[in-house]
Amino acid sequence: MPSEKRNLLLAALLLAAASALFMTLNARGMWDFVLPLRAAKLLAILLVAYAIGVSTLLFQTLTHNPILTPSLLGFDTLYVFLQTLLVLVLGGIGYVQLNPAWKFSGEMLVMLGGSMLLFQVLLRQGGRDLARMILIGVIFGIFFRSITGLLQRLMDPEAFAVAQAFSYASFNSFNRQLLWPALLVVLASMPLLWRERHRLDVHLLGRDQAVNLGIAYQRHTLWLLAWVAVLVATATALVGPFGYPVSFFGLLVCALANHFAGTLRHNVRLPMVFLVAALLLVGGQTLFEHVLGMQAVLSVVVEFAGGLVFLYLILRKKQT
């Protein structure tokens, strides 16, 4: 037990240090200007780190698989597609001018329905064949991206090719208006998900044993999946969809968190996945932006690393 708590403490300290550096490095004394700007950005990063890390961990526990992630199965691009569809259906200008918080809630509701549907389809099509399910999920993801691109061009034909071609998530231009709604969602999720930590451990034993030990399996799974959908939507609404064509960020942080947690218990893994994700993003952003002087390139590097981890996981599994 103590070694796990020690790792968590270490990670938390590292995060605090990285955050301090993030806020203060290279400020050149313009504190009045820099601090509020960076504070907002830091908050956005922390929220996204939490949302993606926790949603991926929950998803992996529910599906009993360390390779699956919501992003791999197209959940984040589904959200962008639904967003665009709503704009189209509810009529361009009027909808866009709605209060962003209301828009967010509406999109969230649609996302809940849409993601449940997607999940059902994937389960039915995938069945026992994991590769099949992942492949179908990836293609769905590409489909959502393509049709979103098409719809956007239909609505605004002068949209530039660059924006469409590589929509890598950007922390520099995140959606400020959604910062407080996103914070609310994350804060609301914390006690509710923390309460589930012991029941999540039981999921590790497989479906039959979870039912045997008194978990209301169907209901519990749906409840957790709903949170996965909400968190994915929150992160995507705040900074846009990660990666192209799929994002490996969630996979990367879960793999790292599992390694550093040293246990399968969720009371350690849940905080650890947040800390690892936050550290990666805050530390990475500080490194690239302030130390190396490179542009908005963090997400690209993260996706590169995550893709390698994914390949390693699949190819390694097959050897044994």
Binding site: H64, L204, L205, G206, D208, Q209, N212
Partner: peptide, 9 residues
């Protein structure tokens, strides 16, 4: 109950 499904994780 104990079924024939093996323990997963």
């Amino acid at each position: 109950i104990l079924t024939q499904e093996g323990s997963v994780q």
